[in-house]
């Protein structure tokens, strides 16, 4: 564990807590993409299959349970909670996210480190996580009026993988043979997808005006 990875995990945890806070307190998920939340539930379900087979640390297992629990409860809230589900703008959240799942699965079957069931699903979760934010970014472009909590959620979610890139650089420099091109490239693509959001987020923060994404 290094400071970059801890910062990344804490940022990731904060992003999930901000979203849960928003949905639970104001009983609204306006501006939140259910598609992205469903993709993240799949990412964690396929990433953490080893939770029963390999134990790294209390921290690792605890965080996996938190990420699994929060992502599935957010999907539950948005789909089934009587008040929250009414605030979900279904007409705007129309990204065909299943078109992301299949290519990621095919790519994982083609490019992986080991051809085993767990490894292919784990690789699939890396590819899917890289693109999981797309429905949310598309929704933000459409709804344009981004409330603070949703903006913070996307900002923190993008920041966590940025910290992970620093963690991978640190581990490459300090641990011999720590070379994982698949993880690195997927993580880089993921962070780059946030680049334009980050740009407009900082612009709005600097000029102290409401976050507006160009149409």
């Amino acid at each position: 564990m290094n400071i970059f990875r801890l910062a990344g995990d804490m940022t990731h945890l904060a992003s999930v807590l901000v979203l849960l806070l928003k949905i639970h307190t104001i009983k609204s998920c306006a501006g939140v993409s259910l598609k992205t939340q469903e993709l993240y539930a799949i990412v964690f379900a396929t990433r953490y299959l080893d939770i029963f087979t390999s134990f790294y640390s209390i921290y690792n297992t605890l965080m996996k349970l938190i990420f699994l629990g929060s992502s599935f409860s957010i999907v539950w809230y948005m789909r089934y909670h009587k008040t929250v589900r009414r605030t979900y703008d279904r007409e705007q959240d129309t990204f065909r996210h299943w078109f992301l799942v299949l290519p990621c699965l095919l790519l994982a079957l083609l490019i992986h480190e080991k051809f085993t069931f767990l490894e292919v699903l784990w690789t699939f979760s890396l590819y899917l996580e890289a693109v999981a934010i797309l429905p949310q970014l598309v929704l933000l472009q459409r709804t344009r009026n981004i409330d603070n909590l949703t903006g913070q959620y996307v900002f923190l979610l993008g920041g966590y993988r940025g910290f992970y890139i620093l963690n991978w650089i640190y581990r490459y420099l300090t641990e011999p043979h720590f070379v994982h091109w698949i993880t690195w490239i997927a993580g880089l693509v993921q962070t780059l997808l946030y680049a334009d959001f980050f740009y407009y987020y900082f612009q709005s923060w600097k000029n102290n005006k409401k976050l507006q994404l160009p149409a």
Binding site: R171, E175, P176
Partner: peptide
Amino acid sequence: PKDDDVKDEL
């Protein structure tokens, strides 16, 4: 797990 294992990450 091997020390260079990336699976210890979240």
